[in-house]
């Protein structure tokens, strides 16, 4: 098994673990932090190919990420409201998340997968954001107990939680979200996770 194949397999297990334990941070392997978008590319290699479509939005470097992903995976590109995978560079969806695919009642799984590529390491801002994170409560499948937990990853604006809450209000329709950091840290928020903002 080649190194690339090996990393994809390992990283997939990490993504699967993240999706099974919403709000917890897992860490992708084989991430060279000096390479821009290394985490997003690792996820792309693991999940994308010519059978799916992607769209990158966000700040000025979104087009660069999009072409890097297309080159690495052969995925098709499409408008954000039709893309299977929506990569968001930075921490703001800027209106695209609300219009992402949510699936059909017969096939809710057709809802998009969102990947927020957070640019600065959340931990650096940790002291300021703990109080903010304290206001977010996550509960549902994959989260032990009924009291819920606080998201482990810092640096995600409260407004994005609120947007995801609304987008996923018609469960099982909705989107499933990953947040990745340049260091390979990854946290998932599937549509089944109940988000409460206090």
């Amino acid at each position: 098994m080649g190194l690339l194949q090996r990393n994809c397999q390992k990283n997939y297990r990490i993504l699967l673990d993240a999706m099974s334990r919403p709000g917890r941070v897992a860490r992708l392997t084989g991430i060279a932090e000096e390479t821009p978008f290394a985490s997003a590319l690792a996820m792309g290699r693991c999940l994308l190919d010519h059978e799916v479509s992607l769209c990158a939005i966000g700040n000025d470097s979104a087009p660069a990420l999009q072409s890097a992903l297309v080159q690495a995976t052969g995925a098709a590109t499409g408008p954000s409201e039709r893309a299977d995978f929506l990569f968001i560079v930075g921490d703001r969806g800027n209106g695209a998340v609300e219009h992402a695919k949510r699936g059909r009642p017969e096939s809710p799984e057709e809802g998009a997968t969102l990947v927020y590529c957070l640019e600065d390491e959340g931990t650096k801002r940790a002291p300021a954001s703990v109080s903010q994170r304290l206001r977010i409560r996550l509960s549902g499948p994959g989260i032990a107990g009924t009291a819920g937990i606080m998201p482990e990853m810092a640096g995600i604006p409260q407004t994005e939680y609120e947007i995801l809450m609304n987008v996923n209000a018609d469960y099982p329709l909705g989107v499933d979200t990953f947040f990745v950091r340049p260091d390979g840290g990854v946290m998932a928020l599937p549509r089944s996770t109940r988000i409460q903002v206090r």
Partner: peptide, 20 residues
């Protein structure tokens, strides 16, 4: 690898919508 990727994508969706 293409087959694996498809199954991997679908497993993530299955986990995200338990029982579906």
């Amino acid at each position: 690898e293409g087959a694996k990727r498809e199954i991997r994508r679908k497993m993530l969706k299955a986990v995200a919508i338990p029982g579906c």
